[in-house]
Computed example of a mutant assay.
Amino acid sequence: MPQLTQAGRGGGRATSAVEEPAPAKVNLYLRVTGRRPDGYHLLDSIAVFAGAADLVHAVLAEGLSLAVTGPEAGVLADEPDNLVLRAARALAAATGARAGAAITLDKHLPVASGIGGGSADAAAALRALNALWNTGLDAAALHGIAAGLGADVPVCIAGRPMRMQGIGEILSDAPPLPAFGLLLANPRIALPTPAVFKARRGGFSAPAGLPGRLPDAAALADWLRPLGNDLQDAAIALCPSIAEVLAAIAARPGCLLARMSGSGATCFGIFRDAATAEAAALTLPVTWWRWGGGLG
C-alpha cells in the first residue's frame, strides 16, 4: 500500500506526499512459446519481486515534473521522456485528473537489466499517483493503463508472485512458493530486450507444467532447473560477461540454482534463505551491481 504523509502546506492547502517502492522483478523461468503476427513473442514465466527496489516519491504540485536521484540515476540523466512521466500522463488522461505532481525517482536498480526496473518504476508511479490524486482506480483499471505502457508493467502493478503469459499481460496466480533467498548480480552492461529477442535462435517451448507443493528452496530449484530461460543463450552471445556472472553465482556456497532473469544481463541465484543470499552477494566483485536478500 502507498504510504501517505503530510508534506506541508502551499498556497493555503495541505499537500500530501506518497512513497511507493518499485521492486525488482525476477523471472524464475522464461519460456518463449510462440510469436504473434505483429512480431511480439508469446511468453510463459513466473515472476517474483525482490527486496531490492527503486522508490517513487510524489507530492502535489501545479505541474508535472520528475527528478531522478540515487546511485543508478546517472544513466537516466539524458533520457528525454522517462516511463514514470508517461505513466503519470496516462493516468491523468484515463481519469481526467487535473492535479500535478513533483515526482522523485530514487534509482537503485540498474537500467536495461532484465529485472523490470523501468516497468516497476512506472507501476509504482501509477499506484502512487492513484493515491495522491485520489482517482480511486482499482487494480483492474490500473492493469489496463499499465498494459499500454509496456509488457512488464501489468505484473509490476500486481507486485506479488504471478504467472505471466501472452506478451506478459495475461496474469494468473503463481503456485505457492516456499521461502527462499535471492542473490542478484549484473555486470553493469545494459542489454536492450529487442536485441536479445532478435538474436534468439531455435523453436518455441511448451508452457511449463505447474508443480504441487514445494516444501523448500531446494525443491523449488529442482522444479525450475529444466525449465530454463529461452533468452539466456542469445543474451550471452551478445554479452559474454553474463556467463561469467552465472558461473560466479553458481560457485557461491549454498547456491541451489543460477540463472539469468528476463532478457538479462542481471542473473540470480536461489539460496535456502535471505541471510545466506545476502552473505553470498558480498563476495561478488565490487565492480558489479549486486544484492542479496529475500522477496519483497
Rank of each mutant, 00 (worst) to 15 (best):
D152C: 09
G34Q: 08
D273R: 04
L191Y: 08
G70A: 11
A94P: 06
A219G: 03
P21M: 08
A251L: 07
C239K: 12
F49T: 02
T283R: 15
A185S: 12
A77F: 07
L129Y: 01
A280M: 06
A87D: 03
P21R: 14
A53G: 12
A221C: 01
G292C: 02
A47I: 10
V111M: 13
A280L: 08
A139H: 12
K107H: 01
L183E: 05
T33Q: 11
C156G: 06
E20Q: 15
F204A: 12
L109V: 09
K25G: 09
V286W: 00
A120N: 02
L182T: 08
I242L: 14
P187T: 07
G181R: 06
T33K: 12
T283N: 13
A234D: 08
E19Y: 01
G292S: 07
R31D: 09
Y40C: 11
A131I: 07
A234G: 11
L42I: 00
G294V: 01
R225T: 15
G296S: 14
I170K: 15
P215W: 01
L132A: 03
G181T: 00
G166P: 00
G39Y: 11
G11R: 05
R160E: 14
A139F: 00
S205A: 15
E20V: 04
W133R: 06
I46L: 15
